[in-house]
């Protein structure tokens, strides 16, 4: 079987960690199928990036490093990925499910007549048959399936496999020619808007996810709102525990409804059914009820603890490992003091 591990570079010319994770999978599939492996890379500095994975034992390295793919733009990325897939003659294409590839590879699938599946959490080959797993209905039903048609493109979820580590060396990559047209250049990427360094609350590589619920904005036992205090406690904790920040839907919705709430919280923080499903080793929730849609957002959190005033909250129903029944304002203030 001809396998293509398809990657893109990052702004600094390096490969994202998610690409190295896919390389681990691609090498395993090569082994299991007795196939051949090509590595294809698009983006700025693609040829140099190929050298950094030269030790993976791929038979060939293909790149598209032209100016047109210096930007993560759908039209040019799709054209470049199409060229790499065609040139490799691959039957199976494995790629990381980064924002850049999630945007363009479905387009490349159409152009190469390939089938595509995303959010792959496991790929295995047995007796020449390749089988994949992904979640359906937003992490509620796990499906195991295969496809007979080739090429078959799979985008793997990040954080599922160990990243490949190995020697760099001479990869002697082949630069694949792509005929970009003017129509491919109608869009220009003008920049990246990042939150200010101290407001950067989403940290995919953090060991801990802290999820805040709407309870932080509710009247507390003295009959008063303590929203400013909640903001200070949460932000203090994020810094001290180097934690990423998640939110329930109710909490971020308050903001779009124009109510006073935690101003550093946006829809990007939302986890769950209509939010993200991040992967972290541990998760701590406070002031959030933790019912089913929210449990969806915690699917990939290994160890789960929750703080809630209500001993019968959703978390207590077999969803968290530990539920601390208590006042999150009091407890988190003490947690912050201990972390100082």
């Amino acid at each position: 079987m001809k396998i293509l591990a398809l990657f893109h570079t990052q702004d600094d010319g390096s490969l994202p960690k998610a690409a190295l994770e896919v390389l681990t999978t691609a090498m395993a599939i090569k082994e299991q199928t007795g196939g051949t492996l090509a590595v294809g890379i698009l983006g700025q500095g693609a040829a140099n990036a190929a050298e950094t994975v030269a030790g993976c034992g791929a038979e060939s390295f293909l790149t598209v490093g032209s100016e047109a793919v210096a930007q993560a733009r759908y039209a040019t990325d799709t054209a470049a990925a199409t060229a790499l897939i065609r040139d490799s003659g691959a039957e199976l294409v494995l790629a990381p499910g980064t924002a850049r590839f999630a945007r363009c590879l479905p387009g490349a699938a159409h152009r190469t007549g390939a089938q595509i599946d995303t959010h792959i959490v496991s790929v295995k080959a047995e007796g020449g048959q390749v089988q994949a797993q992904r979640w359906f209905y937003r992490q509620r039903i796990l499906g195991t399936f295969s496809r007979a048609a080739r090429p078959w493109i799979m985008l793997a979820d990040a954080g599922v496999n160990m990243p490949w580590h190995g020697a760099s060396g001479a990869a002697s990559p082949k630069e694949v020619a792509v005929g970009f047209s003017d129509a491919d250049l109608r869009t220009s990427v003008t920049g990246v808007r990042s939150p200010a360094a101290d407001a950067q609350t989403i940290k995919p590589d953090a060991a801990l996810l802290f999820v805040a619920g709407a309870g932080w904005t509710k009247k507390q036992k003295d009959g008063q709102f303590h929203i400013a205090e909640a903001g200070v406690l949460i932000q203090d904790f994020l810094i001290k525990a180097k934690s990423s920040l998640g939110s329930s839907k109710s909490l971020v919705d308050l903001q779009s409804e124009g109510q006073e709430t935690l101003n550093f919280m946006t829809h990007m923080n939302q986890v769950g059914q209509t939010g993200s499903t991040p992967r972290h080793a541990k998760g701590l929730s406070a002031c959030c009820h933790g019912e089913e849609p929210h449990a969806v957002g915690w699917r990939f959190i290994n160890e789960r603890r929750a703080i809630n005033l209500d001993p019968n909250c959703g978390w207590a129903q077999g969803k968290a490992d530990v539920v601390y029944v208590g006042d999150a304002f009091e407890i988190m203030a003490k947690v912050n003091a201990l972390l100082s």
Binding site: R103, T187, S188, T190, G191, V192, R193, N269
Partner: peptide
Amino acid sequence: ERIEGGQYQVSV
């Protein structure tokens, strides 16, 4: 467009 790490890619 949402990209990794709570950032936005801005395009025209």
